[in-house]
Every structure is written in C-alpha cells, then in structure tokens.
C-alpha cells in the first residue's frame, strides 16, 4: 500500500495554486488534510500525476464569525473549528456535528472544507452545510464564485467544483434567534461512518415552533434539507413525532450495504430524528 509517483506542488498563494491547477488540468488533485485522499492514493485507487498541496498557502486557516455566517478557510482543521468558542457561540451545530467526525487524530489534520469538497454522503459536514444553507467560495482561472450548498452537492462524491477550481472557504449560515440545533448519528463503532445521522434546527418563538428543518447523513444521495415545519406542528410542548418520523421516512432513500439494510437505516434515521426533536424541545 504505497502511493504511485506524483509531482508535488507547494504553492504559497491562492493565485499560485490556481495557476498550477490550470496548468495541470484534470491531472491534478488538491491535497489539503489528506485524510481521505492519502489512503486512496496508498491503495492506488487513484494515481493523479500532480498533487497541489495547499498546506503552505497563506491566509486559508482562519475562522471568521460574521453576523450572518461562520466563514471557515480551506486550511482550518476540524479540531480548530471544533474548539473555536466564538464559532460555537455563533453556530453550535458545528461543534455538535464535528465531534462525530472520525477520531481526534484525524480531526487534527483533516480540514472542514476538504470534507465538504469530498462530498461523501456519509460525511457529517455536508449535511451541516446544507442545513445552514451555506456557501462554498471557489476560485479558479475564470475568477471567484460562490456556490450555494443546494447547488454544490451534485451526487455521491460529486460537487459543482470544476477540476481547476479551488474551494478556498465555506460560509455556514447562522440560524435566526431562538433556534435550537442538534446532531445525532449512529455508527457501528465510535468514529465510523454513520449508518444514519441527522442534523436538526428548530426555531422557536415563545413556545411556538416557527420552523423545523433537517438534513441527513448516509441516507440520501446528496445532503438536502427536509422542511419538517408542517409535520411537527406548532406547539413545542406536543410535537407530532409520528408525523416527523413519517416525513423523514418518506424523504430518505437509503441503500443496503454490508453494515445495514436500507430498511433498517430508514427506521434508524426516523428514530434518531424523533429522539433529537424530543431532546431539542426539552432543553
């Protein structure tokens, strides 16, 4: 299990990185945290001729909390974001989800933006980006553009990023005041990819539910948002859990794999959602 040869590029600016990307075309591959990519290379499931290692690019390691979003640079490691108190205060869902990402040693190196660019339906972060209606900031030879989450995830492992584009940051949207969020997942072992997971945001005004929305892990091809506002009812004291579970079951389309059947995952994600709703409303 050793990678095939590649040319290592170590740009120090975004402009240089984009220039390399342009030059090597589809033969290049961005290397950020590498926690997903390097095993793929070692197993020789992929042998790109060029790796554009952005770890030396200045300015990509910042977390900024803004009025409407938390902006996370492409070199922010999961651990850094997980431990950032201002990011937690602004958007608790980030930490709620990030604690489920693999194990600390992986989180110390893996990047949040890389995780999104990987667009694995079993990843936690894509569902968070979807639920927060976040935006991916991409830079390429044709300039910069913002890609909203709804357009970013195209298929399993497939994003709207072009081969010569670099995701330099993402902006996770912040929720309105009165929003409670939570994240729940069930994996076979701690730190494994979840059999099913759910990110949930419920906005309350007094005791009235103004909105309830969810996105999912491992049970949909691409992370999308399910609006549960209708199903859950208005009164926080008596949420319609059966209707919520029904809506979730109808929304998801889990596949069977070696760890669980599709039917089981469908049941599981409905139950996780039901429990998470109860937990959020009883806080």
């Amino acid at each position: 299990m050793k990678p095939a040869p590649f040319v290592h590029h170590a740009p120090t600016t975004v402009a240089e990185a984009v220039e390399v990307l342009r030059a090597v075309g589809s033969h290049g591959k961005i290397l950020a945290g590498g926690q997903s990519l390097i095993p793929i290379l070692s197993m020789r499931l992929a042998s790109p001729e060029h790796l554009i290692d952005i770890n030396g690019v200045a300015g990509l390691d910042r977390i900024e909390v803004r009025d409407d979003c938390v902006r996370v640079g492409a070199l922010v490691r999961h651990t850094q974001l997980l431990q950032d108190e201002s990011a937690y205060a602004a958007l608790p869902l980030l930490r709620q989800a990030l604690v489920h990402v693999a194990h600390p040693a992986i989180r110390n190196r893996g990047t949040t933006v890389g995780s999104l660019a990987h667009a694995d339906a079993a990843g936690e972060l894509p569902s968070v980006l979807a639920l927060t209606e976040g935006v991916v900031e991409a830079v390429g030879p044709r300039g910069s553009r913002d890609i909203p989450a709804s357009a970013f995830f195209v298929g399993p492992l497939e994003t709207a990023l072009a081969a010569d584009e670099l995701a330099v940051a993402v902006r996770f949207g912040r929720f309105p005041e009165g929003t409670r969020t939570g994240f729940a997942e069930s994996a076979r072992r701690s730190g494994d990819y979840a059999l099913a997971g759910v990110a949930l945001a419920i906005t309350l005004q007094d005791k009235v539910i103004r909105s309830a929305r969810a996105s999912f892990v491992s049970v949909t091809d691409v992370p999308d948002v399910l609006d549960l506002s209708g199903a859950i009812g208005s009164y926080a004291a008596v949420p319609d859990l059966d209707a919520v579970a029904d809506a979730v079951r109808a929304h998801v389309s889990p596949d069977t794999d070696i760890h669980a059947t599709g039917d089981y995952r469908r049941m599981l994600v409905a139950e996780l959602t039901r429990r998470l709703v109860t937990e959020l409303l009883s806080r």
Binding site: G25, A119, L157, A163
Partner: peptide, 12 residues
C-alpha cells in the same frame, strides 16, 4: 467527460 469531473473530486 474529459475535462469535467463527473463525480466530484475525491472519488474514483
């Protein structure tokens, strides 16, 4: 599909 990346950038 020569230039476009049909399945996202981290898959095979």
């Amino acid at each position: 599909r020569v230039d476009r990346d049909p399945l996202g950038d981290r898959g095979f």
